[in-house]
């Protein structure tokens, strides 16, 4: 069989957030703060023309199951071939990894090895701070909630942040992964970085890495149903 030449479909200047389960509102809020158009993505149609897609934090077994039931996993694979960029946060990292320790992989889109619950139970969840030179010159806050660990990256994958014995952020040309949650902190730098990766220019392209008005309850801002 001859290789299929991917057609780079025209894409809307918008970022989608996979809305099956997890921290969707938190990502929407961060993108809104940057002036980037964003939408919740629940169906194949909504998914088929976004410039980038965020796989949010949540429970990867739940999200993987729903992706498979509704065939969205195949649509994601197709759209990545056609030029869509992808960012997996926490559970999203598990979903896109090529290798999972002790279990079969899901989307297998980036050559990394991931260990689920790499740190332990909720009592081992923690907050830290580190600089990611490629993303922001200033140190940024990192929140790890029952986080996975990236233990190894293959060729073609660049390590963005290594802490002790594990990798916390990495990327390939199409895929960005972070095992921590920038959307749970005032940090806008990763969202700005991902927008750039998608070819989008945020209206607030040169703002600070941290949103000074952010509070721990900021996620509730738009969380009510209409």
């Amino acid at each position: 069989m001859s290789p299929v030449i991917p057609i780079r479909a025209p894409r809307a200047p918008e970022i989608g957030i996979l809305d099956l389960q997890g921290g969707i509102q938190e990502h929407l809020d961060h993108l809104e703060r940057l002036g980037i158009d964003a939408r919740r993505v629940k169906t194949a149609d909504a998914l088929s023309d976004v410039a980038g897609l965020i796989l949010p934090g949540g429970e990867s077994t739940c999200i993987a199951r729903l992706l498979a039931i509704f065939g969205l996993d195949q649509v994601i694979l197709r759209e990545v071939r056609r030029g869509m960029k992808l960012w997996g946060t926490c559970a999203g990292t598990i979903l896109v990894a090529k290798t999972l320790v002790g279990e079969p992989a899901h989307l297998g889109l980036i050559d990394i090895t991931v260990e689920r619950n790499g740190f332990g139970s909720q009592l081992d969840s923690f907050a830290a701070e580190a600089a990611i030179p490629k993303v922001s010159p200033d140190p940024i806050p990192l929140t790890f909630i029952r986080a996975p660990k990236i233990t190894h990256v293959g060729p073609g994958v660049e390590i963005l942040l290594q802490i002790d014995d594990y990798i916390a952020a990495a990327e390939s040309p199409d895929i960005l992964v972070t095992v921590f949650h920038p959307e749970l902190t005032p940090c806008l730098a990763l969202h700005r970085y991902f927008a750039g990766k998608c070819g989008l220019t945020p209206q607030k392209a040169d703002g600070p890495a941290l949103d000074p008005s952010w509070k721990t309850t900021s996620w509730t801002r738009l969380a009510r149903l209409p």
């Binding site: 809305d19 389960q21 997890g22 969707i24 909720q122 923690f126 907050a127 909630i145 949650h181 721990t216």
Partner: peptide, 14 residues
């Protein structure tokens, strides 16, 4: 805060 945030990650779930 971390404990509230774990619950946030359970949103939309059963």
């Amino acid at each position: 805060e971390l404990n509230v945030q774990l619950a946030q990650m359970l949103k939309g779930g059963v």
